[in-house]
């Protein structure tokens, strides 16, 4: 159990939507996250991929305790997070930090960099002013910022440097897990590599575990040891990153990775074109959620939610095609 720093079981978030008089919304339940399971090994990076509205950001919010799950469990170090109160909750908040996409809006423009970085330190513990100053200077050095810039304001920094400030703020409490929500999506190509390198260095240096959320498949492929692919609130495939990238088994994963842009003019792969649109999470399809767009759809897909099939390499996918194959081979 303890080799997993974080695991979630049947994690679920349903939003009850009331009927709105101004915008024409229908009452119902939005199944933003609908019973997902995954486990993150200590010191590893798990990538959560999927497209807008698949539930990856809601999952992040639940892990950061910004939203309460409707059902399911989050275990940190084998202990249930939901039950934590008082000092346990404070410990959890110290141990789990986040870095978000937009380095422009996630930093308070009226605060100086040292105050921004010191804020979690002061909020979470009683620390002497001298210690705070030292800690800030030290963490700025670690993320590659000149500590002499501590009294500057965020607008005096470039996008890449701001993201370093955000990482320093997350790092100052010495967390064990970081939730990285699209950490480089707003950055230019040449800056992106600098930040990804920094994140990898920090992981080695501090033994950090990362939950990396991104729609950028290149970033996911670069950073992750494991990948979980989400579609309409469920994980459709999960497993070792190299296997998922090289040999995805779920038709959605296959389509998703075939949409990845080539690295070379000759690399234009055979793209799997999906028909139709992502269905509304208010009214997801019966059976397999992906069946309305799946190129391999079968009658059973509308009736039965496909069970998870596990391959010898640990790759797991929820698709009737795979359960059929495993039934045939066994």
């Amino acid at each position: 159990m303890s080799q997993h720093i974080l695991s979630v079981e049947n994690l679920t978030k349903h939003y009850v939507q009331k009927r709105s008089f101004v915008l024409r919304t229908q009452p119902g339940v939005v199944k933003a996250v609908d019973g997902i399971d995954f486990a993150l090994p200590v010191g590893a990076t798990l990538g959560l991929v999927g497209e807008s509205g698949c539930g990856k950001s809601t999952t992040a919010k639940m892990l950061l305790r910004l939203e309460d799950p409707s059902a399911g469990k989050i275990l940190f170090d084998g202990r249930e997070v939901q039950a934590a109160t008082g000092s346990d909750l404070r410990d959890y908040r110290t141990n789990v930090q986040a870095v978000f996409q937009d380095p422009y809006s996630s930093l308070n423009p009226r605060m100086r960099v040292d105050s921004i970085i010191a804020e979690p330190l002061i909020a979470n513990r009683q620390v002497a002013a001298v210690e705070v100053r030292d800690a800030v200077a030290q963490v700025m050095g670690v993320v590659g910022l000149n500590p002499d810039w501590a009294r500057r304001f965020p607008h005096e920094f470039s996008g890449g440097q701001r993201q370093r400030i955000a990482i320093a703020r997350a790092l100052v409490l010495r967390p064990r897990l970081m939730v990285l929500d699209e950490p480089v999506s707003a950055l230019d190509v040449s800056i992106r590599a600098q930040i990804l390198n920094l994140l990898m260095d920090l992981q080695d240096q501090f033994g950090l575990s990362y939950l990396l959320i991104s729609h950028d498949l290149d970033v996911i492929a670069e950073m992750c040891a494991e990948i979980a692919v989400m579609y309409l609130g469920q994980i459709v495939e999960i497993g070792p990153a190299r296997d998922i990238v090289a040999n995805p088994r779920h038709p959605y994963t296959q389509a998703l990775f075939s949409a990845r842009l080539p690295a070379h003019p000759d690399g234009a792969a055979n793209r799997i074109r999906l028909s139709g649109e992502i269905p509304s999470p208010l009214d997801p399809p019966s059976g397999c959620r992906f069946r309305t767009r799946c190129p391999h759809v079968m009658p059973i897909c509308a009736e039965v939610l496909p069970p998870e099939s596990e391959l010898p390499n640990g790759q797991r996918a929820s698709c009737h095609l795979l359960s059929e194959q495993s039934a045939l081979s066994s």
């Binding site: 190509v189 390198n197 670069e222």
Partner: peptide, 26 residues
């Protein structure tokens, strides 16, 4: 040349080597 070599995700996944970068800012 530098741009081409900074592209992430083009090696075997999870290899965990440093990416090439372009130092500094435009």
């Amino acid at each position: 040349q530098a741009l081409l070599s900074t592209l992430p995700g083009r090696r075997a996944p999870g290899e965990h080597k440093r990416l090439k970068t372009i130092d500094g800012q435009p």
